[in-house]
Design a protein around this nucleic acid. Sequence first.
DNA 1: TGAATAGTGTCTTTCAGACAATATTCT
DNA 2: AGAATATTGTCTGAAAGACACTATTCA
Lengths: 231, 231
Amino acid sequence: MMTLRPADYDASAFTPLAVTVDVVVLTVVDGVLTVLLAKRAEQPALGSWALPGVFVRPDEELDAAARRAAQDKAGVAAPVRQFQTFGGVARDPRMRIVSVGYMAAVPGGAAEAAQADGRRFMRVTDGVVRGANNRKLALPFDHAEIIAAAAADLRHNLDHSAFAFGLLPREFSLRELQQVHEAVRGASVNKPAFRKRLLESGWLEPTGRRETDKGFRPAELYTARAERRVA
Amino acid sequence: MMTLRPADYDASAFTPLAVTVDVVVLTVVDGVLTVLLAKRAEQPALGSWALPGVFVRPDEELDAAARRAAQDKAGVAAPVRQFQTFGGVARDPRMRIVSVGYMAAVPGGAAEAAQADGRRFMRVTDGVVRGANNRKLALPFDHAEIIAAAAADLRHNLDHSAFAFGLLPREFSLRELQQVHEAVRGASVNKPAFRKRLLESGWLEPTGRRETDKGFRPAELYTARAERRVA
DNA sequence: TGAATAGTGTCTTTCAGACAATATTCT
DNA sequence: AGAATATTGTCTGAAAGACACTATTCA
C-alpha cells in the first residue's frame, strides 16, 4: 500500500474520519433473544451498558476488527456478519465516528461463560432491550437503534443464511432449532410445517446421534451444513 | 460537536480512515437491469468506467453524501438506500478507504437524461456488468463486487421495500411493474399470480387513470404507497 | 405403567403456476 | 372488424396451519 498522499489525486480536501465496528452479540436463552452488553470502561458514558466495539486499525479488515471486538470486548469467538453502517454526525459526542455494525451469534450455553464482570446478556423483545425489571433500557449513543436493526436483520434472514445456526450448539434437535426460530421471530410456529420445511431446506445434516439424559424420548440430533445442500 | 481529542478518551492510538460513499444507480431499460457508470476523471484508474462516489465530509450524513454523489457525479436526484460497506485494506491503491455502498433507483425514462458525456448505463446480468459486446466489463477497485452485491440486495428486497418502485415512473401499469420485477429477478413471473399478489400487498394505490396512446387497450395506472397499507 | 416429548398423518386453507377465456381500446 | 393487450376465471399442485395420533425413551 502506498503512503497516504491524497493531494496527489484529489485536489478538493477530504478529512479522514474515525471508523469503528460495534458488535451485536446475540443468543437465545430460555426462548428469549438476548444481546450482550458491556459496562463501558471509558468516557463518554462511562459505566453505562453499551455494545462492545473497537476502532478499526489502518491495516485491519472490517471483519477482523469485528472479530477482535467480539473477542476482546465481549469474550466470544464467533463468526461475525456485517449488517448496516451507522454514520450520523452526532451519534458520538466526542467526534464524528462512522460505525460499521456487525452481529455475532453464539449458542445459549455460551452465555454463562461470556457473562463475566461487567458483561451481561439482556433481553431483546420487539427490538427493544429490556433490563431485569422488564423496562426499556436506555442505551448511550445510537446503540438502541443498532440493536433494533440487528434484530430485524436477523429475523429477516433467518431462513436465508447459515448465520442463525450460530445460535445453537454444534449438534441440536429440531425442537431446539424451532425454539430459536420462535425466539427470533417473536412468534410461535407450527411444528409439522416447520419440521418439513427445514428438513427439506437442505440446511440440516443428520448426525445419527440422539439427545441423552432427557427423561423422555430423545430427539434426533442434526448439524448445520456449511453450504446449503443443492437438492 | 467537540473537537477531536482522542487522547482524552482512548489511550491506545487510533488512526482516522478515509470514508467514501459509492452509489450504484440502477434502472431497467428494455427489460434489462442496468447500472450507471462514469468515466473516471482522476487517478487512479483515470478514464476507466467506475461507480460514482465521493468522500464523506466531516459534517455530512452518510445518506446526504450518497445523494450528493448521485447528483454531482451521476446527474440523478433519487432516493438512496444503504446496502453494504466495503472496507478491504487493499481495495484502493492510494490508501485505506472504507466505502459505504448505496444504491439509487431511477425510472428507465431518466436513463437518457443522465446519459451524458462520460456517463452510461450498462447491462447487469447475473450481477455482472457487460459492455456493448456483451462481454464482462472489467472494473477498477472492487466495483464489480459492489455492483453484484447491490443487484443481489435489490433482488432480495424486491417485495419487502418501497425502494424498487423508484425504477418506475410515478404512475405505472401492472405490466410495467411486472417487467421491472422480471428484469431484477432475471426470470419471468406468472401474470395472474403476480397481479393478485401485488394488488393484495398493499403497496399499490389506484389512480383511476389509464395509459394513453397505446394502440390497444390501455392499462390501469397505479402509484406506489409511501408506506405500505396495513390491511 | 405413566410421563413427557418426538415424530408423523390427515384435513383444510391458502397461494402460486399454467392456461385460457373474456373485456376493452384503438386503428 | 381486427389487432393487441388488459383483466379475470378456473384448474391443479405445492405448501402451511390446525389438530391429533402414534412412537419411543426413561423413571
